[in-house]
């Protein structure tokens, strides 16, 4: 465990590693411009990035592919709720955590 002054140094560096990417093009402004084809391709970045964060978490269990795990069942419940009731922000959390806890605690999966 990193502690004391080094923990704060770590925070500063993580902050820089966050805010330099965030600010990059917004701050550079009109002096830096991506080519328009790249610009159009980048519209797909959010969907690709979010999916690349989420999918490994729900189909992997301890680094191994496991299509029958409680997290995937919970994710399907979240998907269903987000599609059926897009206006209610709490339902996906209630449904997802409900299914996960039911399977893990209730059925010991």
């Amino acid at each position: 465990m990193i502690s004391g002054v080094w923990l704060w140094v770590t925070f500063v560096l993580i902050a820089l590693a966050t805010h330099i990417p965030r600010g990059s093009f917004i701050v550079a402004g009109s002096r830096a411009r991506l080519p328009s084809a790249l610009q159009r391709a980048l519209r797909y970045a959010p969907a690709a990035a979010l999916s690349a964060l989420v999918l490994p978490d729900v189909v992997l269990d301890g680094g191994e592919l496991d299509p029958l795990n409680p997290k995937l069942a919970a994710a399907l419940a979240v998907l269903l709720m987000t599609a059926l009731r897009p206006r209610n922000p709490w339902l996906p959390f209630i449904a997802g955590m409900g299914v996960l806890l039911l399977l893990r605690k209730g059925l010991g999966w």
Partner: peptide, 28 residues
């Protein structure tokens, strides 16, 4: 797991058009 659910609630409305859905599936 609530962090994953939070990311999913951002993802689902984005994947409305076919190219977006393709991008999401391929990325994942």
């Amino acid at each position: 797991f609530m962090a994953t659910i939070a990311l999913m609630t951002l993802l689902v409305p984005l994947a409305a058009s076919r190219p977006m859905l393709v991008a999401a599936l391929a990325g994942g």
